[in-house]
Design a protein around this nucleic acid. Sequence first.
DNA 1: GTCTATAACGTGATAGAC
DNA 2: GTCTATCACGTTATAGAC
Lengths: 209, 209
Amino acid sequence: MPVKKIDSPQDLSTEAKIRAAARTVFHKKGFAATRTRDIAEEAGINLALLNYYFRSKEKLFQIIMMETMKHFMNGMIGVFNDEKTNLESKIQRVAISYIDLMIKDPEIPLFILSEIRANVDDFFSQMPIAKVILNSALMRQYKKAQADGEISNMEPIHFLINLMSMIVFPFAAAPMLKKVASLTDPQYQKMMEDRKVLIPIWINTLLKP
Amino acid sequence: MPVKKIDSPQDLSTEAKIRAAARTVFHKKGFAATRTRDIAEEAGINLALLNYYFRSKEKLFQIIMMETMKHFMNGMIGVFNDEKTNLESKIQRVAISYIDLMIKDPEIPLFILSEIRANVDDFFSQMPIAKVILNSALMRQYKKAQADGEISNMEPIHFLINLMSMIVFPFAAAPMLKKVASLTDPQYQKMMEDRKVLIPIWINTLLKP
DNA sequence: GTCTATAACGTGATAGAC
DNA sequence: GTCTATCACGTTATAGAC
């Protein structure tokens, strides 16, 4: 009886190989700078197969973009809307899950920020992201805590910006940061690990009434 | 006696027109996505003139990149190394001068973050930025205040990251932010103006001993 | 489904007239 | 210095054999 094997590149279907390669290359170089040949080479397949499976570079890119956005948003929405946790633990979980995601996949933040600039409306027309975030359990709890005088009067939008800034920015600026602070990769990783616990503490400090 | 006129596009030399157009287009679209024809059109000149004055797209880009980095760093270095101001007022001035710079030129942060990724070493080999920042008056004052127990024990690198994150990130994420929070441009601008005074207050709160 | 060969097109760069 | 016309090349996409 054959043992179920973990997927390895050789086991993937051609279509899956192309998709995985496209994700890697697009994430690293962005749409304009990647050539379909890069993707074919990364996937170890013939260039013609890319068009056979995905019709065009643009179609393939849209698939990766949507998939990446969904991946990035799903974690968020889950945590933001968990009715069972309170504000403080939500902040902890946002920091942890996002930093984990970006340690695993450090190209994502800059990829999203860069590629969205060109096509803001395309994506958000399909994703009702504004409503989802502004009406999330997190935001409701935040406003309630404010109304009850349990936290400071920092405007909700600034709270959100500050939280996301402290989490995401050091990843978007990683190459520069490493240079400026002369950090080795392990040192950098350690720092980001530390921030998983530090950011919630800092945010709590800012929210003290 | 002719009155000295403020520069307007018509008054600029052809070379200056191309340079200004290149700055605009490169900042907005990045190197890979801009076509030399875009720049020529933006400048209102013939495509051949671009190569006549700048030899190649790449040479022109390097000029813009260096110029932009210098523009971005100069403000910083001036404030960071002003021996006459104390830590608290330096933090205020960093927030104000950077936010002003990015309100005026909102494409700069994402441009730098994206384009540096491809060529980190190229730029920093020419700019001794690590030494300049780590040995700045700001950093010395920070460490001294810490040794004297006047501020909290937040590690200097985290202090720097948090400060820059809160300042820069909302500009890098502006398109997304506007969508998510359903902000009009004036509302967005107002928010960034507010942050010029709020960020120093928040940072001070974090640094309370 | 997968390959090789090539078409079709876009883009950076230049020649040469003015 | 500035223009038009064109080249040279790289890249996306497809035709057609296997």
